[in-house]
């Protein structure tokens, strides 16, 4: 069992292997965890596909498993793991964050209130929103 954190989500994936800098996920879990799907033309999300670099197929795909960490490095996005490889963080690349902000579409998010009820920014479509942070510290 390997835990993979992406954004605010945490996925527990059985039949996954985290070893050295590789994170091998069973193919069925790749899309659910990362939002990307392995197709013949490469890794695809929405209408974007990133081809697997020629000659490096075995680095990314091994039978029914996909090395998601290698793909993350290809995206120039952070992929971090703990000492024993059982806990991973797949972060977003600076380039993708920057592109999102430059589009001026406010990045959507889902966060809980005190009662644990989850609210999405997109639920407030049609209203002006002042999004403001604070902290107890």
């Amino acid at each position: 069992m390997v835990s993979v954190m992406v954004g605010n989500e945490r996925h527990e994936v059985s039949d996954a292997v985290g070893q050295n800098d590789a994170l091998w996920l069973p193919q069925w879990a790749v899309e659910e965890v990362t939002g990307w799907r392995l197709k013949p033309q490469g890794f695809c999300r929405d209408d974007v596909c990133v081809p697997v670099p020629p000659g490096r197929q075995t680095e990314f795909v091994d039978g029914g498993r996909v090395n998601v960490a290698a793909f993350w490095r290809l995206l120039e996005a952070p992929a971090l793991h703990d000492a024993d490889g059982g806990l991973w963080v797949l972060g977003e690349s600076a380039g993708r964050r920057a592109a999102q902000l430059e589009s001026l579409e406010a990045p959507d998010f889902r966060l809980p209130d005190l009662a644990g009820r989850v609210h999405a920014l997109s639920d407030l479509h049609g209203r002006k929103v002042l999004l403001v942070t604070w902290a107890s510290w």
């Binding site: 002006k128 002042l130 403001v132």
Partner: peptide, 14 residues
């Protein structure tokens, strides 16, 4: 930092 703010309009635009 905190507090920081973002103004977002009715269409979800910054």
């Amino acid at each position: 930092n905190v507090p920081q703010a973002v103004w977002i309009d009715e269409h979800g635009r910054i």
